[in-house]
Amino acid sequence: MRIPFRDNLPASAITPEPLYRRRRDVLKLLGLGAVALGSGCSPEATPQAAAPAAPESIPGKSLTIARKLDTTMGETGTRYKDATHYNNFYEFGTGKSDPAANSGGFHPQPWNVEIAGHAEVTGHFTLEDILKPHPLEERIYRLRCVEAWSMVIPWVGFPLGDLLKRFKPTSQAKYVAFTTVQRPAEMPGLNYPVLNWPYREGLRMDEAMHPLTLLVVGMYGHALPNQNGAPLRLVVPWKYGFKGIKSIVKIEFTESQPTTTWNESAPDEYGFFSNVNPAVDHPRWSQKTERRIAGDGFNLFGNRIATKPFNGYADQVASLYAGMDMRKNF
């Protein structure tokens, strides 16, 4: 089934007015509007600081990128090798190097995504149908893990909201729920019930439609490696990393707050929102600081930095939670 897509309309006609304005605000606040959204053809116009200094050879299909945005304003980037060999993807094992070691037999192609729930358009779609209308952007985001380490990663994808709008969610759609693929033959970690499989995550509708929320198909200019959630994953830069669900096979519009895997596993430790918040500690460890994994080569000292509210994206997203008690809604 194909999704009807009208590309002859101006962007403002498709994007709801408040969202459209907010997106412009995001870029304005980042002070990168005109610069980063330019064609990227002049080298000094494209922020380069976060790219690794030593070029690494990167496997996987090279992606065509329409525009680039560094939301970190030039923080030192994480090496490709580190971002792809230090992963939490329990379906391939619970050790940090397990996903890279055990995901070789995983097949990210062909891929289908089911769209379900409160929307006018639902059904099963091929990955090609999902991706076709969306120009790819590179977004350099901070990634803050709930385990108190962090990285700076150039993702390649497009705003999740742009995809969701194509299915015309109804007024009953208050949340979006995501599900990871479950293939025990290809994902050895599924043989042990360390979590209640399949992995599920969710966002409130306004969070899902926020322009910073990215549906990701690549990193470092190339297609996503299996261990990072190929072929399609979520990245929500102001939330702890586990909210960025990997290898998505189902997106469902729901009226009530969906059950999410880590919240189900330990409700007092992992909330539904899980916004990065140095003021609310994990019950067992501090979230005030983080160990930054970035830069070339090995560095034992000076990796610890202060964690910022909303992982440094407070100006863009704090208004989503106005009036909410973030200690209760952690």
């Binding site: 580190d82 060999h85 230090y86 940090k96 190097s97 160990r291 990796n303």
Partner: peptide, 15 residues
Amino acid sequence: DTLHDALGTDPVAQL
């Protein structure tokens, strides 16, 4: 391993 940068991505955690 420390002297040979063989502690992996998060050397402090490894140590």
